[in-house]
């Protein structure tokens, strides 16, 4: 079934098409949701709510841009909505700028996706969302500030701290690999 057929089928509320859509995108979207959810259960909740929104609004997809991008955007927004509901505001600390020297590229290339996923998942809540939005989804600080209801300085600060935290984790993982060798 082509993507167009799946979309048209979903508009007609055809169950087989809906299932095909789920099969096609659920894996990727679950990875997106897991980056935002605090637990696996929360990630599944985001996935569930996101897919319900996709099915409910699929007739409004106009074909501008990729369908996957549209689905992904819905998932991210659902995750943000849930995130705002379980607000992390208490975790927001300071707006001081921290910026470390970039880690060397050749070191970074050796880390697998699942390890990266674990690292992102391990980030403190406030850092995690800002880092995901900025580094992976490509949001600007202004957009992050609008989405999360924080100011841009906070967003920058959280990003810097997330990077520092991840850098430390990467270095630790490299030492671990070296020791194993």
């Amino acid at each position: 079934m082509s993507e167009e057929e799946i979309i048209n089928g979903c508009i007609r509320e055809d169950k087989a098409s809906q299932y095909a859509l789920y099969k096609a995108f659920a894996g990727k979207m679950l990875a997106v949701c897991k980056r935002y959810g605090r637990t696996d259960l929360e990630a599944e909740d985001i996935l569930q709510e996101g897919f319900i929104k996709v099915y409910d609004n699929i007739s409004k997809f106009r074909g501008n841009g990729s369908f996957e991008g549209w689905v992904r955007r819905i998932m991210v927004n659902t995750a943000l909505k849930m995130y705002r509901k379980n607000s992390f505001k208490n975790e927001v600390i300071g707006i001081a700028e921290d910026y470390d020297e970039p880690t060397e590229a050749h070191v970074l290339e050796k880390i697998s996706s699942s390890e990266l996923m674990k690292m992102v998942h391990g980030l403190p809540e406030g850092y995690k969302v800002v880092f995901n939005l900025y580094a992976i989804e490509g949001f600007s600080h202004a957009e992050i500030a609008d989405s999360l209801g924080v100011n841009e300085g906070t967003s920058r600060s959280q990003l810097a701290k997330a990077r520092k935290w991840l850098q430390k984790k990467i270095q630790e993982s490299q030492v671990e690999v070296y020791e194993r060798k």
Binding site: L30, E109, M117, V120
Partner: peptide, 30 residues
């Protein structure tokens, strides 16, 4: 930052096994 690119490249297309019980819940909720 290089870390941003590392994570973007590594996770942008990363996927997991879709859980079937979520599909059942979606189906029920609709």
């Amino acid at each position: 930052h290089p870390i941003d690119d590392l994570f973007k490249d590594g996770l942008e297309h990363y996927q997991l096994e879709p859980p079937m019980h979520v599909w059942e819940r979606i189906d029920q909720k609709r």
